[in-house]
Amino acid sequence: MKIDLTGHTALVTASTGGIGYAIAQGLASSGATVILNGRSEASVERAKARLSAAVPGAKLTGVAADLGTAAGVDALLTALPPVDVLVNNAGIYGPLDFYDTDDATWEQYWQINVMSGVRLSRALLPSMVNRGWGRVVFISSESARNIPADMIHYGVSKTAQLALSRGLAKRVAGSGVTVNTVLPGPTISDGFADMMKDEVARTGKSLETLAREFVMAARPSSIIQRAATVDEVANMVVYVCSPLASATSGAALRVDGGVVDDIV
């Protein structure tokens, strides 16, 4: 099985690091022209240089835009060429007790995690439908189905992505455009590495060991009993973006290592 995205143009939001960057690299390695996105010109340029070195000959562009506002999304859209693959990866997370989560925090999470995908999908789906082919993928989380008590605001935003994705898949039914959601579980991302750097220095343990300990303490239902890598998450996304996944739409596809304890 060979994934070939030659001739397709993919926008991956928040793709200067972590899971987003891994997705961008996977898509570029499959032949797609990739549009990188980050909040600053400097981060976008660093990601472009890194990806150019990793995938020689990759066709890359980049647009700096903060997708937490309508104006930021408009700025991104203005700079885009025609796009037929959209990966809505932009998102924020962080623990905060429900009683301390004020309206401004709820609004921030809603705007970045949900409305950025709403706005981009609303703008880009019609041209995909007109061309008769396209892929939209939302990067949600196992927290969408396993709401964390210490991040209720985050979990709610991720559950909203599931509803949005399913509804959009039905809205474009029969068009040749698919819309899906990918749900990562605990993942060794740049954010996780940054969060654990002091613990690595204090204990001398590897990042992978600390990640495994975190999974077993905080997500003991994990079947793989470790954190995933960003590449393992990206592999699922790249497949769903490819022509090979033409019969998969409206799905919530888990890359959570079996954390969510059910059989569907």
Rank of each mutant, 00 (worst) to 15 (best):
N130K: 15
R131L: 05
G132P: 08
W133Y: 11
W133D: 02
W133L: 04
R135G: 05
V137H: 06
V137M: 05
V137L: 11
S140I: 00
S143Y: 06
R145N: 12
N146R: 14
I147H: 07
I147F: 03
P148M: 02
P148W: 01
A149I: 15
A149H: 01
M151R: 09
I152Q: 01
H153G: 02
H153F: 01
H153C: 10
H153V: 11
H153A: 12
Y154W: 07
K158E: 04
T159D: 10
A160S: 09
A160Q: 06
Q161C: 05
Q161A: 04
Q161K: 09
L162F: 13
A163S: 15
A163I: 13
A163G: 15
S165Y: 08
S165K: 12
R166H: 12
R166A: 09
G167M: 12
L168E: 05
L168N: 07
A169N: 03
K170I: 11
K170A: 14
R171D: 15
R171M: 14
V172T: 07
A173F: 10
A173C: 05
A173N: 01
A173V: 09
A173G: 11
G174D: 02
G176I: 08
G176A: 10
V177Y: 07
V177I: 06
T178V: 06
V179L: 08
N180V: 08
V182E: 07
P184H: 12
P184I: 13
I188L: 10
I188F: 11
S189Q: 08
S189H: 07
D190V: 08
A193M: 13
D194Q: 13
D194Y: 10
D194G: 14
M195S: 15
M196R: 08
K197R: 12
K197F: 02
D198Q: 13
V200M: 10
A201Y: 00
G204H: 07
G204A: 03
G204F: 05
K205R: 14
S206D: 09
S206M: 06
E208S: 10
E208H: 11
E208D: 15
T209A: 15
T209W: 02
T209P: 13
L210G: 02
R212P: 11
E213W: 03
E213K: 05
F214C: 00
F214M: 15
F214E: 10
V215F: 01
V215C: 02
V215E: 04
A218W: 01
A218I: 12
R219M: 11
R219E: 11
P220C: 04
P220F: 05
S221F: 05
S222Y: 03
S222Q: 03
S222R: 00
I223L: 14
Q225V: 04
A227E: 01
A227G: 04
T229P: 01
D231A: 13
D231K: 13
E232A: 06
V233M: 01
V233P: 01
V233I: 15
M236H: 09
M236E: 07
V237L: 04
V238K: 09
Y239R: 12
Y239P: 12
V240P: 07
C241K: 02
C241I: 06
C241M: 03
C241E: 02
S242L: 09
S242H: 13
L244Y: 11
A245M: 05
A245E: 02
S246M: 08
A247H: 14
A247W: 12
T248D: 03
T248C: 13
S249N: 02
A252H: 10
A252I: 04
L253F: 06
V255R: 00
V255N: 07
V255H: 08
D256Q: 00
D256E: 03
D256A: 02
